[in-house]
Amino acid sequence: MNGAPASWCFVLMGQQQAAAELLADSGRSGGANLATSPLLGAAVTGIAALILLLPRATRASRRVGAVMGTLSLLLLFGGVMVPLAGMSSQIVFWALAAVTIVSAVAAVATPSPIYTAIWFALSLLGTAGLLLYQGAQFLSVATVAVYAGAIVVTFLFVLMLAQPEGHEVYDRVSWGWYTKPMSAVVAALLVALLSFSLPAMPGPAARMGDRADQVLHPDHMARFGDTLFGKHLLSIEIAGALLLVALVGAIAIMIQAGHLRAERAEGQSDE
């Protein structure tokens, strides 16, 4: 490990100490910390980006929003996030994160719901990558298979059934004048909140032992299955039953709906 990350961490811990000093001593100028931190810049640009990117009533240029979004991401990655051990891991992580986040934003920003689904699928791929990076191999594959493969496809089916024309009027607008700014502000606040709380979190539990024995064991699947059907046996059984119930329920609803529609059609034709 080279010293740059260490210095960063010291800076991080130094920030923590400074924060503690601030809280103890009320006379100092503690506000400068927040005012000049990259977090504020990221938050502000992020808010602007979201507001500008989200669907508008008229087809307007998204360029400014895209620029602001890029800026926000850069600030976030560069200023708020903590550098990792090696440069390669750093770049991989950043790439995956960027993919995830950008496709998520695009999913939310595009008017057409079908594009939304596709962008979402891309975001899922990014998430799978991130999970893989964490060492949750099974889950990354499961995400791709189940989520992107089954759920998103089902969504697409339903979209085609219900709204084949593509995007409608209501896809372009929201349901109030205050929704976009308010949501953007709330989003920024939440991110800022998390960022504040992070330096003060406790260290890892030492009694948990070496990661290589547990979550990062080479026999990942064996260990995964071991824990799943050992410690969480009941839960998995219930999950299975839940899936069955959901299946049956979905079918039942459709049948019921079909009956109702038939009755209503008859009633209308009788009049």
């Binding site: 924060a19 601030l22 009320s26 503690g30 506000g31 005012a35 909140l193 504040f196 709380s197």
Partner: peptide
């Protein structure tokens, strides 16, 4: 709820407001 219960955040905000 989160904002008010998160001690650090609220204290920071208060200090900032005081300075402001």
């Amino acid at each position: 709820m989160l904002l008010t219960m998160n001690q650090q955040f609220s204290e920071q905000v208060m200090l900032y407001l005081h300075r402001l």
